[in-house]
Design a protein around this nucleic acid. Structure first.
Lengths: 148, 148
DNA sequence: TAAGATTGATAAATCAATCTTA
DNA sequence: TAAGATTGATTTATCAATCTTA
């Protein structure tokens, strides 16, 4: 007599597989950060920032998931390297917005290309499985959106 | 005329969805670590260690993905809190193995329950999509295994 | 008074140098 | 000599206190 796995058990196993796959891939790729003298914090900041849309320090901290003082420190380092710039807000003199410089945008693009590249094993999936995976993840993202 | 997305484009989008979902979930859950006075490094260490199977310091560092000296430091902190113990190897006097204490095992179980819990949105998927997701991820894990 | 950002003291993680044993 | 682990100096990130403007 076949014992069918419970819905919850399948979900738990699925979540374990997904998080391990993602984390392992990220760790295996993080060598380039070291080579460029950047940290995961810098990467998160660059991924969040844009050249044309200034973000307040507080918003950066929130998006990155770090303390406000850490954001200050990160932006200091990025500014020293010429990757970002602080711009005083015109409407609220307490606020400082952060934008990517052209060099920062270029660096961001390189990092996106590296970390955004799908793992080999994903490309090796057959078309049907890949599409099923893509669709399920799209629905997860929507579902999450709806809950927030 | 319909322009079908290239295989690579689908894979890229899939990877983006997966990594964002995983990272966001992890970040949103990491509050408990702070409450317990632990860091992501401690979590990785606890997840790797076991009560009955001593692991050399070097193996810990490798598994955690940190420097050997960081592993020493992490295990120092965990030992101070009574979560792990160092045991000199009987066969090689250079080696020190690390095991979870009963309290460490208990703490690990709590953390596993918290971080291993599938996100709500995953449980909300219908059975077919969940199964498809699970199967595709299983194959990814196998595929990766074969490549290593 | 509170919001936004920064500074200074502290903890967390890395790198280079050292110590011990194989 | 090299492997395994640790120590000391340094960088990275946080917490608590401070400064400026709303």
């Amino acid at each position: 007599m076949k014992r069918v796995k419970s819905r919850r058990a399948v979900a738990t196993e699925t979540w374990r597989l997904m998080s391990e796959f993602t984390m392992t891939t990220f760790t295996s790729r993080s060598g380039v950060l070291q080579q460029m003298g950047l940290t995961p914090g810098h990467l998160k900041a660059l991924r969040y920032l844009a050249a044309d849309d200034a973000q307040p320090m507080g918003a950066c901290a929130q998006a990155i998931g770090c303390d406000a003082s850490t954001a200050t420190w990160l932006v200091d380092r990025l500014e020293e390297r010429g990757l970002v710039e602080r711009r005083p807000s015109t409407t609220d003199r307490r606020v400082k917005g952060v934008v990517l410089t052209p060099f920062g945008a270029e660096t961001k693009a390189k990092l996106e290309a590296h970390f955004g590249e799908p793992p080999e094993s994903l490309l090796a999936l057959d078309a049907d499985a890949l599409e099923a995976l893509h669709d399920a993840l799209s629905r997860l993202a929507e579902e999450r959106q709806n809950r927030s």
